[in-house]
């Protein structure tokens, strides 16, 4: 599948934003992040900024962005529509959380924070389900795709929240979560890659079932239907060379997860404000770069059944 930059940016940025919102909403009532108004507003502002650039970037992917509001209508059947509804609905508790912080609503602010956290989980879950529900794409139907989306979002969100909290010298809780998230993300992605590298399941479609010619025997393409490319080949036929994929996997695993894990642990051990700020800023940059590589691969390594018709594979 073609890794469109707008979609790669969307899942990375919005994913991190929702993860940050989730942890902010959850940790603030527990007193595990700085309690002041300034921290609350800055962290919330950063999360909303990430969410919004992601959503805007995903709209740039549309043929008719001005009609995007229509996408809220089919939540009964469509995960993309549900994602849109969840994303829009989450802005309400975000707004109330912001107001509560400014006007000092106390316990009510905590309630809105928790609601925003729930909205964040719902939105990221819907994003994962958009991919996990596509039957023609074997690598996306995988049971680890939705947990992967949730895990990566919570990991990157915790990392950015930890970086922000470090300026207040109170980063230990989000930094610990970032370290745990990095370990979880490492494990999820490694298991996922090991699985999709294995042979296709026995009931996976083949060129024989795609053409119905299996009764005659082994089938292979002889002449293509067109000599130039087309939308299908550009969108669904995109494939990455194995050796590039391996290199990018290493970038994601080491740069994206292992290095931030180590930096978060160092930040936990280091005292004061300066070192945690530096270490966690570096962790954030690595995590985001690694995630861009991982999101890109998520598309580039996925194969669609339409290529059976063109290449037999």
């Amino acid at each position: 599948m073609n890794p469109a930059p707008s979609i790669v940016l969307f899942t990375t940025a919005s994913g991190a934003g929702y993860g940050m919102l989730f942890w902010l909403g959850l940790l603030r009532p527990l007193g595990l992040v700085p309690q002041g108004v300034a921290f609350g507003l800055i962290a919330l502002g950063l999360a909303v900024f990430l969410i919004t650039i992601g959503l805007l970037s995903s709209m740039a992917h549309l043929g008719h962005p001005e009609r995007a509001w229509r996408a809220l209508s089919q939540w009964r059947s469509s995960w993309l529509s549900r994602e849109g509804v969840a994303a829009v609905a989450t802005f309400l508790p975000i707004l109330l959380l912001g107001l509560g912080l400014i006007l000092g609503w106390g316990a009510l602010t905590h309630l809105f924070g928790l609601l925003a956290a729930a909205g964040a989980v719902a939105t990221v879950y819907c994003t994962g389900m958009i991919y996990a529900s596509l039957k023609p794409i074997r690598q996306w139907r995988h049971p680890l795709v939705v947990p992967g989306y949730l895990m990566l979002s919570s990991f990157s969100g915790a990392t950015i929240l930890a970086m922000t909290a470090a300026y207040w010298g109170q980063a230990w809780a989000p930094a610990l979560l970032a370290a745990l998230g990095a370990a979880g993300a490492f494990w999820v992605k490694q298991s996922y890659w090991r699985d999709i590298d294995g042979p296709a399941p026995a009931d996976a479609p083949t060129i024989e079932s795609a053409t119905g010619l299996g009764a005659i025997g082994r089938t292979r393409p002889l002449e293509p239907p067109h000599t130039e490319t087309n939308y299908l080949l550009r969108e669904m036929g995109f494939r990455i060379a194995r050796k590039h994929a391996q290199r990018l996997r290493r970038v994601a695993l080491l740069g994206g997860f292992a290095v931030p894990l180590a930096l978060a642990v160092l930040a936990l051990l280091a005292g004061g404000t300066l070192w945690p700020v530096l270490l966690l800023s570096l962790a954030t940059s690595c995590a985001l770069l690694g995630l861009l590589a991982e999101r890109w691969l998520m598309f580039a390594e996925a194969t669609h059944t339409v290529t059976l018709y063109y290449t037999g594979r």
Binding site: G63, K135, P136, I137, V306, Y309
Partner: peptide, 26 residues
Amino acid sequence: DTCIGCGLCAWACPYGAREMDEDEGV
């Protein structure tokens, strides 16, 4: 008139039966 050109339906079709009109965005 209501398609937003998101392309998701083309991904969901196993048979490659849908092609985006990249001129009109639908």
